[in-house]
Design a protein around this nucleic acid. Structure first.
Lengths: 194, 194, 194, 194
DNA sequence: TATGAATGAGATTTCATTCAT
DNA sequence: TATGAATGAAATCTCATTCAT
């Protein structure tokens, strides 16, 4: 709550995200994180109790950031355009936080994984934002029959994550617009053509 | 090569897959693997040289199995039906080998991952099978303009993996047919309607 | 000196004794003590300078209390009865301050113990009270030959401590009178029968 | 079970006992213990799982040694002489294993202490040996009325421990025979005079 | 007089790997 | 072909102490 404490946690989150992009979350050491954040090792333990505690808090923080950005693009009047904006924002975030996205994708579907409880809740947060946008498309009568909004939302979120990572890792020469168009082809295939 | 040696390796593969479902590859220790397989720790080193050697062999083995099954369904004359069969086979494999699939999704896009080199090659194997089928659809003139086969193949593979895992973990009550239909709606959105 | 300061020190003493019963002095952390006392960690350092300072002050405080009570029973005219009263008072104190007694028994004979210097002095305080009473018995000609007062005093103190703790921990159903009688059998064996 | 494993544990026990006499058990580090035993730090963890595991095993080992020695002196035909031999053996052991005895005295009456479960059982072992000898004295009709054997055995054990430690720490100039005689005065006061 | 975030030295623990059998 | 005790580098974690407020 104190400004000092908050900024310390912030510094640690940011340092961890930075390092995770370079080396992956699994390979990070508390020493590295503390050094990158410019604090003592003990400070990590003072603030988060354990390395796992830091990761857990980081997941909440990162998903919070992602959710915030996705929600910021809900204003678009045309529902399909809004969805496109959401996809683009998602791609931008993932490209900018690859290490974080990597941990999401690798922990999200782990059966009893260490952070599964946390992640299940966080997944719901994101999926519900996607769901809302898809619902707007459905309300506009532009979803073909047979599409269930909750299922499609979960699928779209997973696809977005995985396609974005594949882009970053295996096809870095493509532009974000290209990748967005690739995903939108699927979405437009689903959303009824005008 | 001897049956005894093979069964030792097999036991180690199976134990590793069983454990990986619960704890992920990075969290596995050689002690645990050996104990779960019912062999001594030294046996892992005798057979695979190192922990990485074991994982590497396991990945090749698993992807080999998946590729074999996917190829077996290439005979279907109608290209869209063949794609559907491929999707169904993929779903079946993932449902039956969740631990392995979890590993794939965890490690495939890990940037400096220890097994990234191996996995890049293996990813190519699978993606090229998908590509072949999509190419047949394209050759039949049933792909809308703007779709690039290589990109779509990579996307379809990732989506398949992620949607299947989401099904297993978060929506286990759905039937494989339902999930397959969900994915085919996307594919049919892409493949030109008959 | 101020009532507030006193109560802070008192709170810290009490919290430390409470915790020491469970975990011993060595296993206590300043964090735990402060939390149990309901004050901030810095307050311990403000009031006592260091963890050792707190323990040191606590030992002096506790031994002071014990010595005060033991001295209060020196008035008894019959020297053997006075010794019995002293034993009874000792048992009462130990039963009522088990945590403190546990500390004494743990630390008193620890060779390079951190608080050994303090404890040696404090031990002398108590032993000298016992010695005084035994000397009165000796002066009354009721100690058999071969008994050295200083040795017997040290032995009686240790026995009292240990028997009282054994009573509290392993034989709580016995009454204080019973335990006192057990010790007095030894003492009366030593003190010449009337 | 293997000779190598046993001798490693033995080496660790002996090194720990040696160090405990010098520095007390609480202040020992695994580094020191491993170095003193001439093995790698990991070897401690391989053999005992944790520092606590080592201490726990050491307590069993030490008490086993003490019990063995005490039992070896049960042959003496005269029961009071047998008791004297037992006391002497106890004093010798404690003098030779001060660090170990220190931990016994400091943990034995700790309420929920870390090793209390182990120690309660071990205490029973020792006390029952003392009980046996006292029972022989009682059977010979040489215990005065009012002495309960179990109570007296527990008391004698505690007194022996505490008097021996007090001798070692505060009165090292006394001989073992002197200290033994001091304790025997109590015992003979209790045992009926011939 | 009191606070509590931050520290860092030093402790415990982990675990892939080796090697004699 | 297999074993498992031993290793040690490197990780995680603890905690008495400091200090700005």
């Amino acid at each position: 709550m104190s400004p000092r404490g908050e900024s310390t946690k912030q510094k640690l989150f940011e340092a961890t995200l930075r390092l995770a992009t370079e080396k992956g979350l699994a390979g990070l050491t508390v020493d590295e994180i503390a050094a990158a954040a410019g604090v003592a090792k003990g400070t990590v333990y003072y603030n988060f109790g354990s390395k796992d505690g830091l990761i857990d808090a980081l997941l909440r923080y990162g998903v919070g950031q992602l959710a915030e950005r996705l929600r910021a693009h809900a204003a678009e009047p045309d529902p399909v355009a809004a969805l496109e904006s959401l996809v683009d924002t998602g791609l931008e975030f993932i490209a900018g936080h690859r290490g974080f996205s990597q941990i999401l994708v690798s922990e999200l579907w782990r059966t009893p994984g260490q952070w599964q409880e946390t992640l299940s809740l966080l997944r719901e947060d994101i999926v519900s934002i996607v769901k809302e946008q898809l619902q707007r498309v459905a309300d506009a009568g532009r979803l073909p029959p047979g599409i269930e909004v909750p299922t499609a939302a979960a699928g779209l979120f997973g696809t977005l994550l995985v396609v974005a990572l594949d882009w970053q890792v295996f096809q870095p020469q493509r532009s974000r617009a290209e990748v967005r168009e690739g995903i939108m082809l699927l979405v437009r295939g689903v959303a009824r053509q005008d």
